[in-house]
Design a binder for these strands. Structure first.
Lengths: 215, 215
DNA sequence: ACCTGAACACCGTTCAAGT
DNA sequence: ACCTGAACACCGTTCAAGT
């Protein structure tokens, strides 16, 4: 048994706390058990520290969440630039999507903490730039940007909570098929469906803003 | 001063608790102070009851949230049917959007509680029906449905937390305009913008699924 | 300088006890 | 039958005290 402060050279001897060690441990915890289980006390226990020692290195829980956000944002795999504008936007959105799949709690942090990491600026720039090159103007650019972003927020949150969600089919019940035939048809088409709506739906959005061929 | 159980005929004499009174009080509280302030103890105080009396009428907090969801779903203003399919979908989505504007906390409940109210089935049916009439098939129907729903989730959650969010422009800082010209242009186009992305964006989505004129 | 236990003001919920 | 206070097992955070 490891005794705190024992003379034996244990590898578990308490390393000093620092911001990086706290953020890393928090990320590990959140990925293993979900954001709801990330409490200051639990995190401290994970670090073999007193619950209050964390406050030497982080201001409060929000500060921790923002530090975690920043850490993840820095690690985003930046996709290669694409000549074609829609391919460029698809690539950047896929990078965001992949990030939200690994860390779905990020969306909640982005919404609740009210600020993003500065590390995503280059990626955001690539989207705006492509939208301008596609010929969008004025408020259209913001609107379409928000369509892309808000859709990916909703999709990610939905995926995050998909586990505890009853399939619509169950909620409906079998009897409802008579009264709601289109819903029933859609539900049965969705059976065994691979939940890969994201890419086709981004493509749909981009199709809507691409000027139609007028020959 | 009203004395509990006094003989005087006060209007504040404790009415008996029941499910409806609890749900109504919870809705009032949540609309006034936000979902975070809806705690069992606070709600009980609002009803001049002991904190634990609520549990005679509701199973737990989740049960209460679902009851609130159901109440709101029943009160949705059902829009008149539209002959044109895209107009029909626009109308139904507007009804959802209006509902989420009044009660943004609904989205969180829908995501976290993992079930919707049966009262929205007629509205969902109208969307699926219109999508089929537009010629969509198989998984396309589900994909586009989820595009519409997930976008409106993201938009609503974003609106809910818009107050505490710093405008991207502030996060960027002025200096960043050199490195990120497209972002800066978009941000300044967004200045004074009316945050009415929803309708145009639903229209964009529908445009993408409408077959192009091939003359 | 760095860490921490006790304490404060909260949570949701259980349970035995009151009327 | 209906209500409730005390209690349990949690939260985030403050603050005075320890080394």
């Amino acid at each position: 048994m490891a005794v705190r402060g024992s003379a034996s050279k244990e590898t578990v001897k308490p390393k000093p706390l620092d911001r990086d060690r706290i953020v890393s441990a928090a990320l590990r915890l959140v990925r293993r058990e979900g954001i709801a289980r990330l409490t200051m006390r639990r995190l401290a226990r994970e670090l073999d520290a007193g619950a209050m020692s964390l406050y030497r290195h982080i201001a409060d829980r929000d500060d921790l969440l923002l530090a975690m956000l920043d850490h993840v944002a820095q690690s985003i795999q930046v996709p290669a630039p694409q000549a074609d504008e829609t391919a460029e936007i698809m690539a950047v959105m896929k990078a965001f999507h992949d990030t939200f799949r690994t860390d779905p709690w990020l969306v909640g942090v982005l919404l609740n903490e009210g600020q993003a990491s500065l590390h995503i600026l280059p990626l955001v720039e690539r989207i705006f730039s492509a939208l301008y090159r596609l010929g969008l103007e004025g408020e259209q650019v913001i609107e379409v940007y928000l369509l892309l972003i808000h859709y990916s927020y909703g999709e990610s949150l939905s995926f995050e909570t998909a586990g505890k969600r009853k399939h619509l089919l169950e909620t409906f019940g079998v009897a409802a098929a008579d009264r709601y035939p289109a819903s029933a048809a859609a539900m049965s088409a969705a059976r065994g469906w691979q939940y890969r709506e994201f890419q086709p739906n981004i493509a749909r959005i981009l199709k809507a803003i691409t000027p139609r061929q007028t020959v």
